[in-house]
Design a binder for these strands. Structure first.
Length: 569
DNA sequence: CTAGAGACTTAGCACAACTCGT
DNA sequence: ACGAGTTGTGCTAAGTCTCTAG
């Protein structure tokens, strides 16, 4: 099943009728483990008196108890949403009695779960092995499907277990109960002529359908936002790989016409139509700053975040002059996942003047681009180039930046670790462009200190090695024999070795420091044409394992097969 | 054009698994 | 062999974009 062939030049739709497969067979999802009631000695108490909860109410209470040491359980919205949903699961007697969250004591439950997790850590090796074996069995049975002629890995074959919803950022629905998914909620998708997955004994699927226009195997509707969740294939699968390839080919098509498009939107800055000016300025931001498109969101349904088209007046500040630069736009807004975007960018005068115009007579909470949305923008883009949408600019600019940076930063004379540092720096330039941030690792300070200690130790070692070398030189001068000559050689070698080790550590420290709050993974996985990296590795004799781990090599198998050292994005 | 459903990609984080020095 | 620190993986939320109906 590992052998795949791709057309060498252009990715194509496998079928011309829009269907995604002919044959699809799988075992269905793994359901969430059923609720295990608490032992009777673990009690919940209300208003100082212990009280036995009904099974349903107890389960939801344990969700809260498990989260007690997270800061967000102290938030008012979280508590309100939780309590509201919890009460719905109570019996009418419980509901009558439990009316104030502050009077609830979950401590025994919390202690119990802490003890459980300790016990799990302290399990014997055999028991851990047993669990591992069971997981492996589950993976083998449910983790694969047959699509057309290939056995393919499934990405997420487990149904999401129930729990309390925790959105990102300031989410109005945090703390709500994410309910348990039953077989009756689940839609199965497979081919008619396949062996259909069986629902658990005594249950039924909501539906079994045979829709080969879609790629998912299982779906259900989630109760927090009412959106549909899917079980789909792993990125290593044919269907995902071809799609990925296609994405990068579209971005390469953009490369061919991007100068034309840039010229066009610069012209449009002068248009007499407000709508066209807004479109042109937004597109400039998307191109220059790799902003996301910015669809409209329903207010109050999720955290207040924006992208380009949904920017509001309050998200930018205009400075005719700032820090010695003219026409500076200061961006400050929350983007996807409530990650802050903060940037001060000098722009062309004409853009600046347009922004002033767009902001005239508006309140801070008004839309900056009031005549624009993603649908208008994408319709325009579609006319400029086949398959062009706003997000293609992100892919294009990310990939072209990597290629440029690699060209600029790679020094042919440097050794392997130095070259890899260059790669990471090129990758980092992209991550910064795309604003891929992470919380600094909790162990960051300590880990830097450790590394510094290692470096210091290595420096001492080097000084010592150099002293030895000097001694050997002096020896040779005096003795002039073969033995001293050999000794000198070996001391020289030793110095070189330690020098190299020291450099490696210093490179590592630099890399880590620069990476403190930057996440490289997202761009590597989603924005960088893997053929650029494969070509770079081949050109400089870098083993691909230094750049891509096993999972990544599987995902990018198509590119590793395809690209040679002169691949140009 | 608007709203909503649906399908699919992109995202950061928690924790499990592994690695390396002692 | 062990534990601390690092890396990899699973999870699932949060985006983008298309399509359809009114």
């Amino acid at each position: 099943s590992g052998v795949r062939s791709f057309e060498a030049v252009e990715p194509h739709e496998r079928y011309t009728d829009g269907s995604k497969w002919r044959f699809l067979e799988h075992k269905g999802p793994v359901m969430a483990a059923p609720y295990e009631p608490l032992p009777s000695n673990v009690r919940f108490s209300y208003d100082g008196k212990s009280m036995k909860l009904s099974l349903g109410a107890e389960e939801v209470a344990t969700f809260f108890a498990k989260m007690l040491d997270h800061e967000y359980t102290t938030k008012e919205i979280f508590q309100k949403n939780f309590f509201n949903d919890w009460r719905k699961e109570m019996t009418s007697e419980e509901r009558a009695k439990i009316t104030d969250l502050k009077k609830c004591n979950f401590n025994e439950m919390a202690e119990y779960f802490k003890a459980q997790s300790e016990a799990r850590k302290a399990m014997t090796k055999e028991d851990k092995l047993k669990i591992k074996a069971e997981n492996e069995r589950l993976l083998q049975e449910y983790g694969f499907c047959i699509m057309d002629n290939h056995k393919e890995r499934i990405a997420n074959f487990r149904i999401e277990p129930p729990g309390l919803f925790r959105g990102r950022g300031d989410h109005p629905k945090m703390g709500m109960l994410k309910r348990r998914i039953r077989p009756e909620d689940i839609i199965i998708n497979c081919s008619k002529d396949s062996k259909h997955p069986k629902p658990p004994p005594g249950t039924k699927w909501k539906e079994v359908r045979h829709d080969n226009k879609v790629t998912w195997l299982v779906s259900w509707t989630e109760n927090i936002q009412g959106s549909i969740k899917y079980i789909m294939l792993n990125p290593s699968s044919r269907i995902k790989g071809e799609k990925d390839w296609q994405k990068y080919e579209t971005a390469r098509n953009l490369k061919k016409c991007v100068e034309r498009l840039r010229h066009q939107y610069r012209e449009d800055w002068k248009s007499k139509e407000m709508k066209i000016r807004q479109r042109a300025v937004a597109l400039y931001f998307i191109d220059k700053l790799a902003l996301r498109a910015g669809n409209e969101k329903e207010e109050g349904e999720s955290a207040d975040t924006v992208g380009c088209c949904s920017l509001r007046v309050e998200h930018i500040n205009l400075h005719a002059e700032k820090d010695g630069q003219e026409f500076v736009v200061e961006f400050d807004f929350l983007g996807k996942d409530s990650i802050r975007y903060y940037n001060k960018v000098p722009v062309e005068k004409r853009v600046f003047k347009n922004l002033q115009l767009f902001m005239e007579n508006k309140q801070p909470e008004d839309d900056l681009f009031d005549r624009l949305n993603t649908s208008i923008l994408n319709k325009h883009l579609q006319e400029l180039m086949d398959g062009l949408t706003a997000k293609v600019f992100r892919t294009y600019n990310a990939s072209i930046t990597l290629q440029q940076q690699l060209k600029e930063l790679t020094n042919p004379d440097e050794n392997l670790p130095a070259k890899i540092l260059s790669y990471n720096r090129a990758n980092r330039a992209v991550a910064i462009l795309c604003n891929h941030q992470r919380a600094a690792p909790k162990t960051f300070e300590k880990s830097m200190q450790n590394l510094q200690a290692k470096i210091d130790a290595k420096k001492d070692q080097l000084a010592e090695a150099k002293r030895d070398l000097k001694g050997a030189k002096a020896d040779l001068k005096v003795r002039r024999d073969e033995k001293s000559k050999k000794a000198l050689e070996s001391k020289k070698k030793a110095v070189e070795r330690v020098e190299e080790q020291l450099m490696k550590l210093e490179v590592q420290a630099t890399d880590r420091e620069e990476n403190k709050q930057i996440a490289l993974g997202t761009s590597k996985l989603n924005y960088l044409d893997p053929r650029i990296s494969v070509a770079w590795c081949k050109k400089w004799g870098i083993p691909i394992e230094k750049i891509y781990n096993k999972t990544q090599r599987e995902k990018f198998a198509w590119a590793i097969d395809m690209a040679d050292e002169d691949f140009e994005f």
